[in-house]
Simulated assay, not measured.
Amino acid sequence: MNEMTEPGYHYAVMRRAIERIDAAGGAALSLDDLAAEMNMSPAHFQRLFSRWVGVSPKRYQQYLTLGHARALMRERFTTLEAADAVGLSGSGRLHDLFVRWEAMSPGEFARRGAGLTIAYGFFPSPFGEALAMGTDKGLCGLAFTDETGREAALADMTARWPEARVVEAPERLAPLVEAAFAQKGEARLHLIGGPFQIKVWEALLGVPSGQVTTYSEIARAVGHPTAVRAVGTAVGRNPISWLIPCHRALRKSGGLGGYHWGLPVKRAMLAWEAARADARA
C-alpha cells in the first residue's frame, strides 16, 4: 500500500496517534510505545508521522502540553487589521492550499437555504471523521463527528439551512475534501451566513496558520470593538471548521475557550499548525 495515495489509511494512523498523545496529558510517550500501538515499526511510524506533521512524534508532544495555548498567545499572537482581514479579497492561503470563497447575499441567507441543493458525505481526516457539505459553489460545511456522532453532526449542520434540499453525494465533495486535508490544490468555499457572521469568518481567514488571535481582536477587525460576545457566538457558529480557522481564536488569558466539535480537536489543530510552522522556519 502506498500511504501517500491512501488518505484514509494515512489519516486514520495520524488520528490514532494524536488521540494517544493527547490522552497522555503531557506525559512523555516513547517512540517505541507509540509505534507499537500503531502496529508499525518505530522507523516506519516516525517516517510517516514526520512526513505529515513536519516534526518527530517526540517534538510534536511538546505542542500538546496544557501550556501550549498560553505560549501561542505570548509568541504568535496576531493583531488583525480590518483592511487586511475583511477586505472581501476572495482568497487566502493555508500552507500550500489556495482557499477561494464566495459569500451568500443577505437576501439569499434570509431565505434559509431555499432553492439550494447541499450535498454531504463523511470522510476520514487527521482530526477524526469529518462531515463535509457543499453546494455547486463550494464547501459550505465541515464538521467533526467523533464527539457528537454522525446523526447529531448532520442534524446540527442541516438545521442551519432548514429550507435547503440535502442529499448524500460524497463523490461531489471528494476533490475539495482531499485538497482541504492534504493542504494542496484549491478549495472553494460557499459562506452561508448572515452579514455579521460572514465578516467574522472572513476575519478568521486572515489569521495566518501557526498563529492565534483573540475574540476582542476579531471584534475590532470587523468594526465592532464592543461586540466581543457576538463575535464569540459567530465564531462558534462557523460552519466550515478547519478551513475557516475558528480554532485559532483564543481567550485573552491564553485559555483555549470552547470548540463546537470538541477541545481535543482544537488542541490537535493548533499543535499541528504550530509544528508545521516551526518546521518551515
Rank of each mutant, 00 (worst) to 15 (best):
M4I: 14
G8S: 12
Y9N: 01
H10I: 08
M14G: 00
G26Q: 02
L29C: 12
N39K: 09
A43Y: 09
H44A: 14
Q46E: 15
L48P: 02
R51I: 02
V53L: 12
G54I: 10
G54Y: 13
L64T: 15
A71W: 03
A71L: 06
F77M: 12
T78H: 11
T79W: 04
T79V: 07
D84R: 13
V86R: 01
G90R: 10
D96I: 04
V99F: 07
E102K: 13
M104F: 01
M104A: 03
E108W: 01
R112K: 10
I118M: 09
I118E: 11
F123L: 08
S125G: 13
L131N: 03
M133C: 05
G134R: 05
K137W: 02
C140T: 11
L142V: 11
A143R: 10
D146R: 06
E147R: 13
E147A: 13
T148G: 08
E151D: 08
A153D: 06
L154R: 03
M157F: 09
M157N: 02
W161G: 00
A169S: 15
A174Q: 15
P175G: 06
L176E: 13
L176Y: 03
Q183E: 04
Q183C: 10
H190N: 00
L191D: 00
I192F: 09
G193I: 02
G194H: 06
G194Q: 06
P195L: 03
I198T: 11
V200S: 08
L204R: 01
G206Q: 02
P208A: 07
P208E: 11
S209H: 05
Y215W: 12
S216C: 06
E217S: 15
H224Y: 00
P225V: 00
G232F: 11
A234M: 08
A234T: 14
S241F: 04
S241H: 08
P245A: 12
R248L: 06
A249T: 08
A249E: 01
G255K: 11
G257N: 07
P264Q: 06
V265P: 04
K266H: 07
M269C: 15
A271F: 04
